[in-house]
Design a protein around this nucleic acid. Structure first.
Length: 685
DNA sequence: TTAGCCCCAG
């Protein structure tokens, strides 16, 4: 065999460094094989193994590995192959190779374990991780800081933060990475306060953070939603010259958005010199999280003109924006875009598209998509989407059918399935079926959570079984939260029960003193029984606490555009015409027998004024806009962010009859299809 | 004699 000098090795080293393509890598590989150098300078072989794997050729890498790892006592190449697998998501192969390595008597070292642990961490393989932990103890590598950090990370990613914390606490020396791992662990476990306390400690110990730490800290602050802390992190990044880092910029954009300051997020975004996919997706998500879906859509147009092309995550964000807006038309457009862009549609994205169709009122398309999925590829979320979709439309029976079919096909329901099926029963008034499903939960080994009790209380309460609902709360094995009492309060509103309503409201005012919705509900109950003194007292309370009724907002599709209306909107460019229309419609439907439901107007004023105020509810403005601008055969579809009010519900029945229009309203809870004077919910909602 | 642990969009 011909020996080549070190200068030749250096030459190949350089060549490999600058090699960016699979084709040139193959050339270098073959030239090294011909020269025989690959068997002598193993670090070159190692580099090729790594490159093949990152270029998506793990099998080629493995063949190379198999052909050159002739010295059995030499762990370097094994470590290389394990590293290549682990860093490219080939988790099974990593563990398989590690196991072969052990069986072959090759000793692991401090370079082996971090990658094996990474593979366990990325697939939440806690059992395998624990075995590796045992191996580390046996081989005496627990004192290595890289191994320790990887171990803490593995436990954290497998959801065992406490075990990770134990390893962390037992470390004698902690470097920045171990601190960061622990900070990230708390952040990922949604314990942002703990994460920030640890960050404080790194500062006290005089450790200089790196960009990874700051990203995690920014994430934690985002979870906390504290704008002041967000500004502090932003300032820290500026002072320590971290702001050049793209990851940091992205995390700051996301942080501000999650703290509700989407304007500040946009400011940071606009100042960025370079933007990657994550920058765009973070900003888009920020708009969606803050209810500014139309801003998100504008930004998407900008994104398409940029050098960053949308990926499946972008698609997911946009589809969820359409779901939020209730815009089937836009949703369809994006669905088309997704198909045409040839992006990879995974189960999550497909389910999101189905959910969009279901929640935008197009159940047929949702169901067709579901039927197109091969039964073996339907996961629990696919079923959940359909069950929830049918439930929202009041098709309780259909939801129950899907639920049975799901069980027949051997798909195990989860907590979301039961939330969906119970609320489906609730909307359809199927209380016996609902009771049965609730009883089946334990049999199907899904433990009832507070939200399931809330569904039951809602179902029983709506059906008028107020005392049974109340008893259920009293007998709950878990402490009832605001959604449970809120369901009872809503039921009291529907059935006009002041007495139980007051009990529920008292709990709610303690549990959620800032939540205006409960004050509004209770004052509605008082208003319905003409207890204006109590209404006034509640209003006074709200005023003293500085609470305001959350802004109602309704959206209607119009051509390629979307029009949004607030209550008593004077910002929408068409408000004057729309006001005239609602006023004239009120006159016409009154002649057909519509009676304004004055209890829906919160204010303690003269009846005539209250009646007048009802006209300008956001959903009425949106429907009036639809009648004025859409062709007579077009369906008027409106999405409202809160629950549709009683008076609007009654008015829409009359409007659908007199104007011969199909009106579909999606509110915070469900769909209402108005046609010929009736609503699909049969006034049961 | 060569290699590494932790991060941002969903």
């Amino acid at each position: 065999m011909r020996r080549l000098g070190p200068s030749t090795e250096g030459f190949y080293d350089q060549l490999l460094k600058s090699c960016n393509f699979l084709a040139s890598l193959r050339q270098i590989h073959s030239s090294l094989t011909t020269s025989g150098l690959i068997n002598q300078a193993l670090h070159l072989g190692a580099k090729i193994i790594i490159k093949y794997t990152t270029y998506g050729e793990p099998n080629t890498a493995r063949s190379l590995f198999n052909s050159i790892h002739n010295d059995k006592s030499y762990s370097f190449l094994w470590n290389t192959m394990i590293r290549a697998y682990a860093n490219n998501g080939h988790c099974v192969e990593t563990l398989e190779l590690y196991s072969t390595m052990r069986r072959s008597g090759i000793s692991s070292n401090s370079y082996t374990f971090p990658f094996v642990l990474k593979a366990c961490a990325s697939n939440s393989l806690i059992l395998e991780g624990k075995v590796v932990h045992g191996d580390i103890l046996r081989t005496g590598f627990l004192s290595d800081s890289y191994v320790q950090a990887a171990l803490v990370d593995m436990y954290a990613k497998c959801g065992q933060t406490d075990d990770g914390c134990k390893v962390f606490d037992e470390m004698s020396v902690r470097d920045l990475v171990s601190w960061t791992v622990m900070i990230t662990a708390y952040e990922q476990a949604e314990k942002p306060e703990e994460a920030l306390i640890l960050f404080q400690k790194t500062q006290q110990e005089g450790l200089l953070s790196d960009s990874v730490t700051i990203v995690s800290v920014a994430s934690a602050v985002g979870q906390l939603g504290d704008v002041l802390k967000a500004q502090a992190v932003h300032g820290y990044a500026i002072c320590n010259a971290f702001l050049e880092d793209l990851c940091i910029q992205n995390s700051i954009v996301a942080m501000y958005a999650r703290c509700g300051n989407v304007e500040k997020a946009r400011l940071v975004f606009d100042m960025m010199e370079k933007r990657d996919l994550i920058s765009w997706n973070s900003m888009l998500t920020g708009y969606i999280q803050n209810g500014q879906a139309s801003e998100a859509l504008l930004l998407f147009d900008e994104m398409q003109n940029s050098d960053c092309k949308p990926n499946p995550v972008t698609a997911l964000i946009l589809v969820s924006a359409c779901t939020y807006l209730g815009s089937r038309q836009l949703g369809r457009k994006f669905h088309g875009y997704i198909i045409n862009s040839n992006m990879k549609i995974d189960a999550t994205l497909r389910n999101a598209v189905m959910d969009m169709y279901a929640k935008c009122g197009d159940l047929d398309t949702a169901e067709n998509m579901f039927n197109d999925i091969h039964p073996s590829e339907r996961n629990v979320s696919s079923w959940n989407v359909l069950i929830a979709g049918y439930g929202m439309h009041g098709h309780g029976r259909k939801a129950l059918e899907f639920f049975s079919q799901m069980l027949e096909e051997g798909v195990k329901p989860d907590h979301i399935t039961f939330t969906s099926i119970l609320s489906a029963c609730s909307h359809a008034g199927l209380i016996d079926e609902g009771r049965k499903c609730f009883a089946d939960m334990t049999k199907l080994s899904v433990k009832p959570e507070v939200k399931h009790y809330a569904c039951m209380v809602d179902m029983l309460g709506r059906a008028g079984c107020l005392y049974e609902a109340f008893d259920m709360i009293k007998q709950m094995p878990l402490p009832p939260n605001d959604s449970v009492w809120g369901a009872l309060l809503l039921a009291c509103r529907i059935h006009g029960n002041t007495e139980i309503g007051e009990i529920a409201a008292n709990y709610l005012f303690q549990l959620e003193p800032e939540h205006t919705g409960y004050f509004v509900l209770m004052s509605n109950i008082y208003a319905a029984s003409n207890k204006w003194r109590e209404v006034g007292k509640l209003r006074e309370d709200m005023k003293n606490k500085g609470l305001k009724k959350p802004a109602a907002f309704s959206v209607i599709e119009y051509g390629k555009d979307i029009q949004g209306f607030h209550t008593a909107d004077r910002v929408n460019p068409y408000w004057k015409e729309v006001y005239k229309k609602v006023e004239s419609m009120a006159v016409e439907i009154k002649m057909a027998g519509y009676m304004p439901d004055l209890s829906c107007a919160l204010h303690d004023v003269e009846d005539e004024d209250r009646e007048h105020m009802l006209n300008y509810h956001s959903e009425k403005l949106a429907v009036a806009f639809g009648i004025m601008n859409l062709t007579p055969e077009a369906v008027i579809q409106v999405t409202k962010n809160l629950r549709v009010c009683n008076d609007c519900h009654s008015a829409f029945r009359f409007i659908s009859y007199i104007y011969r229009r199909k009106i579909i309203v999606r509110d915070a809870n469900r769909f209402h299809h108005f046609e010929g004077g009736t609503c699909s919910c049969n006034d049961y909602w």
